[in-house]
Design a protein around this nucleic acid. Structure first.
Lengths: 269, 269
DNA sequence: ATAGAATTGTGATGGACATCACAGGGGTGT
DNA sequence: ACACCCCTGTGATGTCCATCACAATTCTAT
């Protein structure tokens, strides 16, 4: 495969793309505060990122700064918004109109950012025709056609885990290229499809490791009990005072699925 | 700073910790399906990860497998749950009981995983005393004391962005070491505090970049308009047919905040 | 004008981590 | 009991990307 790393086929690393929206957000805020010029150092302090990283990230897309001075906030935010496609509107649909799906549809944060919620689908016939946040719930059999006709760009998956992979497969077959997945699974998709997963439980479970190392709240035993043998080894590296950093290491998964070729791996974000 | 990379002070890379919960999830599923033994190859196919990565990840914590055979599913899942602290219960509290906070409190996914929702706080006096999903909403002035008395391990932040950093500062001062942040900000915390952020809009905004490269749905112009100059450069790397992979590159932020020393950078996950 | 201070953009460097590749061990069938 | 196949655990290797460090440029003050 041509593209050994995380970048799309242009030479821009995926990590960089993942940081841009954060830059945009902070820059927009600065702009609203009336700040006209900002240096990579100031921006870095505000974000907890090194100035060098910011400069290098931006350099992938152009030369937006002025030596000795910094970046014009309004200009830079505009350029970045254009790079990210945030100067456009994007059509989205939600599949799964349960508790979660309804919360998503009613979430007021998408629309101001240019994400138009245009359709909702659910397999439950009793929901059919219901009005949820201004959308009429449609059946699954309409989905593929409707997505194409309405020119949906991004589909938000909010169905139970058991049905999620199957749904995602259908979406992929139907030509959907971007999926925001709320189901607690590790979706598999082809290389040209992008999935981001939102999974609060996973996030919590990665924090418990560090709490555990800290020796926090010992004594509360879960009801779920061990599934395996009771032997407790720990590879020899007990590491008291695990402390550690909060900052983010690179994320969970990066691999290039060697075995199941043609399939993307675990989701991002 | 001792710990140059992403790992906590033990030698275990943070990326590895971030993958473990996913392994646990798939292993639990296999266990329920009655599978008793699994090889790193099979596991890798199921997850979209190379077998070598799985073996190496597991090797940080012990030698759980058997040559020529694979891993005993029940045993492995038990060991990993112990490593992650998933064999215990964890006390959590929610701050911010608006639309989002209520959805979080009522989310049925936490409790089966051992996360006990024990308290809810909000600054809005009209919410004080209200019963939300079985929790009585308390005022912010009670928060710090209550968190300590109730032995809260993880605090979920669901307040508006403007108040989020201030709240997080208070939590940190109060000794909270793990925060799940739903506010659309890049929280700054000291190195010994862990934050994971959940930010659907950010996730969407990283996908639009690739859609844009694909030339999807050109012609829909956002209302928000450009903020900066109209000049449209693109650093020379136009990259048609951006295709690219869906798989996850490492995550957005990893840095070791060089400037603002002692502060953690952008959130994880 | 000129000196000095600040800041960008980028080649070079280094570190973290994914992948490779193989020695060592174990199971199975004849 | 032997031969064969399979699979783990891990040192060695390679890749990606964050950081460094500096030449080039711009602004400010005098």
């Amino acid at each position: 495969m041509r593209n050994p790393s995380g970048g799309s086929s242009s030479g821009i690393p995926e990590v960089v793309i993942l940081r841009l929206p954060v830059y945009v957000r902070v820059l927009s805020q600065l702009s609203q505060e009336g700040v006209e010029v900002v240096s990579s150092r100031e921006l870095g302090e505000r974000l907890g990122v090194t100035p060098a990283q910011i400069r290098k990230d931006l350099s992938y897309f152009g030369r937006f700064g002025k030596q000795g001075r910094g970046y014009n906030v309004g200009y830079l935010v505009g350029e970045l918004r254009e790079v990210l496609g945030l100067d456009r509107e994007w059509n989205t649909a939600v599949v799964g109109v349960g508790r979660l799906g309804r919360a998503i549809i009613n979430y007021p944060g998408f629309s101001p950012e240019g994400f138009r919620m245009l359709a909702a689908f659910d397999a439950d016939p009793t929901l059919l025709g219901a009005n949820v946040g201004g959308l009429i719930v449609r059946g699954m059999e309409e989905m593929e056609k409707a997505i194409q006709e309405m020119d949906i760009d991004i589909v938000i998956v909010a169905v139970p885990g058991q049905q999620a992979q199957e749904l995602i497969d259908i979406l992929v077959t139907g030509g959907v290229k971007s999926i925001l997945n709320y189901a607690p699974i590790a979706p598999r998709v082809p290389d040209d499809v992008r999935v981001r997963s939102i999974d609060p439980v996973l996030s919590m479970q990665t924090m418990t490791y560090h709490l555990n190392q800290l020796g926090v709240g010992r004594g509360r035993i879960g009801k779920k009990g061990r599934l395996g043998s009771p032997v407790s080894r720990f590879g020899g590296r007990l590491a008291l005072a695990a402390g550690g950093r909060s900052s983010a290491g690179p994320l969970p998964f990066s691999l290039k699925p060697k075995p199941a070729a043609g399939q993307g791996p675990l989701s991002e974000s």
